[in-house]
Write a protein that binds this DNA or RNA. Structure first.
Lengths: 148, 148
DNA sequence: AACATATAATATGTATACTTATTATATGCA
DNA sequence: TGCATATAATAAGTATACATATTATATGTT
């Protein structure tokens, strides 16, 4: 195995690129008075309306406690709503409110802009390889990390 | 621009892969009673012995307050040491202790293992493209994000 | 020297992210 | 049915991560 990069810098590259992506997204989400993580919740709900906090935490690869807190904040801002699950009295089903839907719709446009900014000057074939490698890294690292 | 992936999923891919990488590293750093972020500090100090917290925060792309807190914790564990900067009474110079050096040395080996686990089955040429694309994404996104 | 401005570190407050424990409710099985 | 076990959500505690403010010290200008 003779890769060009120092093995210790894979972590740096992942973390720094992810951080800067978050910071750019934060500049956009700020206008809607939410964080990028909260946008992530709204985006999931858009295509998974009425799922439980448990399922949501699995889909987002975050633990239940974290997602629960985020739902608290989003509910306080009236962007989502908790509904008692009629089939399981331990669970809540989470719904987007109308305002919540409007916020996601607005931010999806910003998100597309950020994507275009991010991939500027990158050849499509290379970007495809990048995606494939990222998925492989994820799969390789997931083998012994606990997740859904 | 017709990339294969949904523009909204670039963030997911970055965040999830970075998270899983952190979780795997955490399994290793735990044996040394530190976090992956604290390992990052020690690793930087290894090649930049005696730099200020300010410089350290710049090299790590984190803000000074965050790095200051991490130094507090590492100092409490006797892995690093603060020294008054003789040339600037506002500043501290941060040093690895002997124990700190041993911890980095041990974890660098673990880190190499994690790297190998991560890149298993990935063709070197594709990994090179991956690195290049990551760097381009970083550069593109850094244009309007504040950083060093 | 005196003063305005910049800078290094710290303090404070908010928001993830994860661990462990707790509570209420489900579910499987005797 | 009754009980052991599993599960959904929450609570409490620790550690980033960042924004804003504060304090002490430097530095530039007059």
């Amino acid at each position: 195995m003779s890769f060009a990069i120092d093995p210790h810098s894979l972590g740096y590259l992942l973390h720094h690129t992810t951080s800067v992506h978050r910071r750019v997204m934060a500049q956009h989400t700020k206008a809607f008075d939410i964080t990028p993580e909260q946008y992530g919740v709204l985006l999931q709900l858009r295509t998974a309306e009425g799922i439980s906090q448990k399922r949501l935490s699995e889909k987002m690869h975050k633990d239940q406690a974290t997602v629960g807190k985020m739902i608290d904040k989003l509910e306080a801002k009236a962007l989502v709503q908790r509904e008692a699950d009629p089939a399981d009295r331990r669970a809540f089903l989470v719904h987007l409110t109308d305002t919540g839907s409007q916020v996601v719709d607005g931010l999806m446009q910003d998100s597309t802009q950020v994507h275009e900014q991010a991939v500027a000057g990158i050849a499509p074939e290379e970007f495809d390889i990048f995606i494939k490698v990222m998925q492989q890294l994820y799969n390789n690292l997931s083998q012994d990390a606990l997740h859904d």
